[in-house]
Structures are given as structure tokens and as C-alpha cells.
Amino acid sequence: MKLLVPIKRVPDPATTIQVRPDGTGIVTDNIKWVINPFDEIAIEEALRIKERLGSGEVVLVTIGEKSWQEQLRTGLAMGADRAILVVNDKPLDTLAIARVLAKVVADEKPDLVIMGKQAIDDDSNQVGQMLAELLGWPQATFASKVEISDSVCTVVREVDGGLETVQFPLPAVITTDLRLNEPRYASLPGIMKARKKEIKEIPVENLGLDLAPKLKIKALKAPPKRQAGRKVSSVQELVHLLHTEAKVI
């Protein structure tokens, strides 16, 4: 079974994010970059599927600058077999990303695409769904459990108010939720082997796709600073203020 795992590079969740003064983006100096945590879960799940089946290939793909190799190497060190870097340095919106991925899928012909439900930078939560639509494949988003037998896939999804189990034939697109698994750490031998694994670079222009953005970010703003709380001297005063000032009771 061939598993394709699209990944995205995002700022480390522990990084303090600052918005650029002109509101066009975030300050990227001194940011530590990591694999999007949901995508890391997708890599882990792909590796587990391959291990359970006893054979298969896990291929990573990302769309970004050459330096994104670093995150691909980390994924290869976890155990993925090879990687594809679609080299691009222009801003792409979610539909453009889905189109690029659809082209990679057409070339690679994987049995399953498994990716994070969303990237933690812009939290769009769109690419997986769009990709499935472009391919005309079944999709199961927010997966918290994945089982595959005889090209039938069963996924437990986390939906509002409970769990939903869906079943569909492969090929398909799955997007991963937080509780699907706990990603492994790359091992030392994994890291040493990753150096020898292939990362194929494809310039995005060579794909011949219409990638003109349909979506434009007009401005980014930091959320307002939280005000310090206020101390009140009695319950009566609290109730009074909740009624007259906060108007919640």
C-alpha cells in the first residue's frame, strides 16, 4: 500500500508570535519551524498502517521553499520512505495547495492520502476536503481511529457531540485529529538513515496549474491584550456589577 502524507511547515507552537507592524504577516526572524503537529500525527498513522500491513511505502510531500527540506528530513527520520518537495516561494491559498496536491496524487497514485485536519498557523481546515473533492475520492475528516482491511477503510470521526464511524473504499483522503495517536520520536539510527533517503524537488511552475490566489489576506491583527481582573469587596457588589455593568444577570 502506498500512503501519501502531505505536511506543512509551521512555527513551533511554543513560539511567541508577533504580527508585523504593517499587518501583512507575522515576524519570522528567530522562529523555530516544525512539522504541523496534526501532520506529524498523520505521518505516525501512515507508519503504523505500513507496519501493521507488513509492507508499503510512506511518501511525504510538502509545498514550500527549499529550506522546508528540514521538516521533510525530520519526517524521513521518523521512518517515512521518501519525500517530494514542490518548490514554491509565492503565497498560495488553500485551493491552490489542494490543486498542487491533486497533481502529485495523479503522478504518485497512492492508495491513501492522510494529512492533518488543519495547520496550526492559519487553522483553515480546508485542504483535505478540497483535495478529496478534486480527486472525486471519499473523505473522512477528524479521524480518531483508522482501520484498513482489504481496501476497505473504517474511520472513527470526532464530531460535535460524539463519535461517528464511517466506512468507504480506497483510495481516499483522511484527515487526522489530535487523539488519533501519539507520534514517535525519531531515533538516532532513523536520523542517520534519513540522510540517504530521496527528496525529489519539483518546481511548482512545472506542474502547469492555475494557482492564482482566490483569497487574499487583507490584514493580520494581534488579539487585544487581556485586561487585568478587578477585585470586589463583597458578594453584593459582585452581583450588583454583574447586573448593572456586565449585564449578564
Binding site: E70, R73, Y185, S187, I191, M192, A194
Partner: peptide, 10 residues
């Protein structure tokens, strides 16, 4: 080296 950086990260 890149490998040493990755060892450090991991």
C-alpha cells in the same frame, strides 16, 4: 551537521 541538529532536536 544537519544530523547533529536533528539529534539535538529529537
Amino acid at each position: 551537521s544537519d544530523e547533529q541538529k536533528m539529534v539535538r532536536e529529537t
